[in-house]
Amino acid sequence: MKINHAPTSWEKYSKTLADLVTNSNSKPKKNILAPAYKNLRPHRHFVSWPSCPKRRISFLCGYTSASQLELKLELKSIKNFLKRHSSLARTEPLLRNSSLLNHQWHGQALEKAVAIKRMASLLHETLSTMKILELVQTSNYRG
């Protein structure tokens, strides 16, 4: 019984084997990992932090993820302070009566009150920014 192309096939295989052993006429092998590496390349439109617009950075309000977590734990204390401050501010006479500025002692007290008020308003602003940031993050997770 004759097998079609039998000698030819054998010759072909033997040639391939000989090529593999002697490494002659070998073609450059394709890198099978190339497509995978290609996928790992950074996206062309990736925005690095240094080139991130200033507005966006200020929106993030200067938080690193680690310190943000730490701050979340301490948020309660800050909120408690603000709650106490706002209830006291309603009854604070120093901020209303500017004539008290004439007296030195009252001047110092007023300066202190203003410093505390400025800090409290910054804390309020920061907390609201954090709230916005949390909302943005939550919406991102939802996809």
């Binding site: 200067g62 204390s77 106490r84």
Partner: peptide, 17 residues
């Protein structure tokens, strides 16, 4: 107005940040 130690440290941490 008084400030409690835990409030002080929390606000200080924010300032440090």
């Amino acid at each position: 107005m008084n400030i409690y130690p835990e409030e002080f440290s929390a606000i200080f941490a924010l300032g440090e940040n």
